[in-house]
Design a protein around this nucleic acid. Structure first.
Lengths: 258, 258
DNA sequence: CAACGGCATTGATCTCGCTCAAGGTGGCGA
DNA sequence: TCGCCACCTTGAGCGAGATCAATGCCGTTG
């Protein structure tokens, strides 16, 4: 549970494709003001009214953004994975807290310094804008999923979303006997809250999908998908986009069942 | 239903406070490349795979962003009001369509030209970034609202959201006998779809809230709020933020019952 | 090692909201 | 002007999901 700088910041930042593509000059500047921090599962990265304003990139692991409700429960409003950015450039403190959903590694910048870099390098600025646009699209997809009337459909939409918008995350996908496996990064209570349901209903929905042969429950937090098409059917999703199949994702996972 | 340039673009853009605050030089440049368009209620502003890529600002009226489902129904994923920006700078075509929810006036820019301006003027760039951050926060608030288990709570959350995130929109608020009135910018079928429910359930939820004295239904699309605190209670919202009361909003509306 | 607490699951019951159906209203075009 | 159609509303019945409750499991703590 060490919480301080691990290995050098240089290679960590270069893990993110978009950043690796930046000119050397910008990368060098970023390196000088960034600080690598590790967070163990359950640790808070940012609190709600955090005055210690920072922005950052996720290097590895999974974070979740959440709103704290008056009854003390946490409401998840999004997941952050490797390559995602968080923080509010040019604006006030974030209304959401960020917590590590798994052991994670992030690269944080002091906000003012990062903003100074944005002003100097249009390429970086453009990158940040694109990241927020991506997040916005994700959030809107979440909305479509959440507005599905039945819990079964919402759960299917959630799983489908992991396969599409979060597909580049090695941690989530695996390959068991040629079937695609997905690790579910949050527990039943939080998932239930995210989907607007109760833990019992989520559990029943999982097993209902399993009974219909859509998926297989290997562990509470690990399921195997039989067919993405069936999943999309359940979710009522219009199109799958590109060539997205169980095989594609399983191959990308590279056989590490984890 | 005229669909072409109405009055001069100059004063139209200056309607938006953030833009009015920009240096004269930038405003002048914006003016030269912008084009005012009016859309009648129900008209499409942008289609899904629109190749005619544009970005724009809403001058007046209300637009809704929606995803078209395979069954032909439209799924609303957000509302755009005066001062909001739409379009995807630096990125591919939007996965969502935009339609006028009321007679509206927008200011559109050809994307490439607008991007050129972004590159030249950091202030404008910063403004755009802030707009997207606002949209992102809105989308996340939508998520919290949508994840409320009961329709009553989701409807209360929706109304509360109109009072908070969309508060600066003159069209929506009015003052009837000292009570705050809210105009609901979309019809029951769309509202139902947005809230993940059926029109009948939404109607019942409205009247259930009315029976409990939380609000009063003046017209199907016009309700009077008795107490914002009660509304927040119903929605299960943590905090109201700042000094947000029925009186504050009614005063801001300026007594135009409309 | 034992006790505890949180999580996942399953069952039973009851409420809520979906479904189908009908009637009332307003706007729009013939 | 009349007729049409979309919308809003209300009613009745049924299914899905919330609720309450109990069990087994695991990781942690004393």
């Amino acid at each position: 549970m060490r919480n301080d700088s691990g290995h050098g910041a240089a290679d960590a930042l270069a893990t993110i494709p978009e950043i690796a593509d930046l000119p050397d000059e910008i990368r060098a500047e970023l390196k000088t003001i960034c600080r690598i921090r590790r967070f163990a599962q359950g640790q808070l990265v940012t609190e709600v009214g955090d005055t210690n304003e920072m922005v950052g990139y996720v290097i590895d692991g999974i974070l979740r953004m959440q709103k704290t409700l008056p009854d003390g429960r946490q409401h998840v409003v999004g997941l952050l994975v490797a390559g995602d950015m968080f923080g509010r450039v040019y604006d006030g403190p974030s209304p959401f807290a960020i917590e590590a959903a798994a052991d994670s590694e992030v690269c944080v910048f002091q906000r003012a310094r990062f903003e100074a870099l944005l002003a100097r390098f249009p390429e970086l600025d453009r990158l940040v804008l694109l990241h927020f646009l991506t997040e916005l699209d994700r959030a809107r997809d979440w909305m479509v999923v959440l507005a599905t009337p039945k819990v079964r459909g919402r759960l299917a939409g959630f799983l489908l979303m992991l396969c599409t918008r979060y597909r580049n995350v090695g941690h989530l996908f695996g390959d068991a006997d040629g079937r695609l496996t997905i690790r579910i990064p949050i527990g039943r209570p939080d998932l239930a809250h995210l989907l607007g349901a109760r833990p019992e209903s989520v559990s029943r929905a999982f097993h209902a999908l399993a009974d219909d042969g859509i998926l297989e429950i290997l562990r509470p937090d690990l399921v195997a998908i039989r067919s993405i098409e069936d999943l999309a059917e359940e979710a009522g999703e219009p199109e799958l986009g590109d060539g997205l199949t169980v095989e594609t994702l399983a191959q990308a996972a590279g056989g590490a069942g984890r």
